[in-house]
């Protein structure tokens, strides 16, 4: 493509390179290479960060999980701790593209590309993830929810590199779930996705955080549904009611879009699936007993 490609060997070098004008970062390249080929204007140079060891760290501490921006989805899938403690994260990673894509695509790339259908974004947002961003000017932190600006746009200056994403580990009485509706199993861009983080006090929903994907220009916090569920009993009846509320929200948000009649209905099941999976470790017995799950 006749673009100068730099391969820095340290993060510092990469940061320095991004200090010049009009460079672009390439990590997994699974989105960027397509974009470069389709576009007329090209960046003056590329900085390949895909093999920087500082960005490939996946650190799991008692209170905090931090994922380097160049960690691939396969790295996540193969991580035993994540599979055990945060299975929804493994599930999400396995639903992205297919094996070839998972092997190359990075979590940082998925975030910075900021596609409305990006699978990792609603889940990371529901976990309250923060982005750690580095440049020659120093390091800054920003909530992922504030980092994504618009469709395909993030609040990242041209000299900055997303270094890592971090979020708190799940507490004793917390659970997290992710669900995605696509046209097929593999190689599917999500039609609707939903992530739910829930905290239960006995059978009362103490706290809940809900994000949906593919239902707008960026992942959306479903505040109305959250406030409806906060403080109520976790049972099928309330989750069904919440699903109806979400459905209403979605039909208003999508308005006259052609996908509205379909998404309005489908979002209910996607949401319920994420909810049930978030609360799975408490057992969903009561849900199934009271009429069973319809998913």
């Amino acid at each position: 493509m006749n673009i100068k490609l730099y391969k820095p060997s340290t993060l510092n070098e990469a940061v320095e390179l991004m200090g010049y004008n009009d460079g672009r970062i390439i990590a997994g390249g699974t989105d960027l290479i397509i974009e470069l080929r389709n576009r007329n204007e090209k960046p003056s140079y590329l900085v390949d960060i895909s093999s920087l060891s500082e960005l490939k760290e996946l650190r799991i501490e008692k209170e905090m999980i931090s994922i380097g921006s160049a960690v691939t989805f396969t790295d996540i899938i193969e991580n035993k701790y994540i599979k055990e403690k945060l299975p929804c994260f493994t599930d999400m990673a396995m639903m992205i593209g297919a094996v070839q894509i998972q092997n190359r695509a990075t979590i940082g790339g998925n975030i910075c590309n900021a596609a409305p259908a990006a699978d990792s974004i609603p889940l990371l947002m529901s976990l309250g993830a923060k982005c750690i961003i580095i440049s020659q000017r120093g390091i800054r932190e920003v909530l992922l929810a504030n980092f994504i600006n618009d469709k395909g746009k993030v609040r990242l200056n041209s000299d900055e590199i997303l270094k890592l994403i971090e979020f708190g580990s799940l507490g004793e009485n917390e659970g997290c779930g992710f669900s995605k509706l696509g046209k097929r199993n593999a190689m599917s861009i999500s039609t609707i996705s939903c992530a739910v983080k829930i905290r239960l006090d006995e059978d009362i929903i103490d706290n809940i955080c809900i994000y949906t994907g593919s239902l707008g220009i960026k992942a959306t916090k479903e505040e109305k549904v959250e406030s409806f569920l906060k403080g109520v009993i976790y049972n099928k009846q309330n989750i069904d009611k919440a699903a109806d509320l979400l459905s209403q929200e979605v039909s208003e948000r999508l308005g006259t879009r052609a996908s509205m009649p379909y998404k309005r209905v489908a979002v209910k099941t996607v949401f319920k699936e994420a909810c049930y999976s978030a609360a799975e470790k408490y057992g969903n017995d009561q849900l199934y007993m009271s009429g069973g799950s319809d998913i």
Binding site: M1, L5, K7, I26, G28, G29, T30, I33, I34, L46, D48, S50, S51, Q100, I101, N103, R104
Partner: peptide, 10 residues
């Protein structure tokens, strides 16, 4: 990997 989505330099 899909070799259409990898640059030689990588």
């Amino acid at each position: 990997a899909n070799s259409c989505l990898v640059l030689l330099g990588q």
